[in-house]
Write a protein that binds this DNA or RNA. Sequence first.
DNA 1: GTCTTTCTTTATAATCTTTATAAATAGTGT
DNA 2: ACACTATTTATAAAGATTATAAAGAAAGAC
Lengths: 143, 143
Amino acid sequence: MQLREALDSLKGTGVRITPQRHAILEYLVGSMSHPTADDIYKALEGKFPNMSVATVYNNLRVFREVGLVKELTYGDSSSRFDFVTTDHYHAICQECGKIVDFHYPGLDEVEHLASHVTGFKVNNHRMEVYGTCQDCSVKKEAH
Amino acid sequence: MQLREALDSLKGTGVRITPQRHAILEYLVGSMSHPTADDIYKALEGKFPNMSVATVYNNLRVFREVGLVKELTYGDSSSRFDFVTTDHYHAICQECGKIVDFHYPGLDEVEHLASHVTGFKVNNHRMEVYGTCQDCSVKKEAH
DNA sequence: GTCTTTCTTTATAATCTTTATAAATAGTGT
DNA sequence: ACACTATTTATAAAGATTATAAAGAAAGAC
């Protein structure tokens, strides 16, 4: 369970643990679905009927700055947020928007080459593959 | 010069060549800077004082659908647009936002593995490296 | 346990990017 | 030059995200 560690990590950086922050983190840890800010807002409005959207956005920013959460921006209108566990990449279905995680041995070599060619000091990288998931492939073949 | 080819390619798909489209494409081909829609709008308002922002957005969408242009979405607020010449990747400076192109032998292997693991039919992929460009590194060391 | 300070939340408005709409305009083939 | 249809324009609308100020709550000191 990574929720405990995440909370400790927050405390370590002097960020206060509020019920809202606890709930948002808990939701992110338990969610396999890479939710948007609005997804989170809606999911928690039962528990926190008075919570403001701004709270969700503020805290997602805090989590991102501390490194607990990654912000994923695709072509569509809103960002998605991914609790950082282990390094992984994403496969994105262009039909239904589904996101599936997959692992791949780190692309350190790309970072090195990029650094050499561009003169950048490279910190990290991002990669996704785009295509059609199995469900959507089946649906398409059934006309 | 790729402008000619791009125009031919548009004609081939039945898209009309308007002065605005010509100018937007010309700007994209000549620009090394991965402009936003607003950059393009501002850059052309001298030549087309009455052009609407909607025209810029509409045409960028058309170009993207035809495959002439790629839309890049990073964390920041607005999309950037990249004229498709040869396959390349981007190095992005986290200090100043500069984007530098670099080449890398295709990551076909990643696509294959992803396809195998997730069951997706993979069409393409996207990758960027993030870091600090030389200019910003120098500035930082000079305190 | 209470106090105090400071951070956080809330509610609301504002901002910014992008898309929708309908009327006016301009390409393109004949 | 004509007619048909796509495109542009101007405007409004939608949607996501951020700013603001007042009210509320967390954490450490006492």
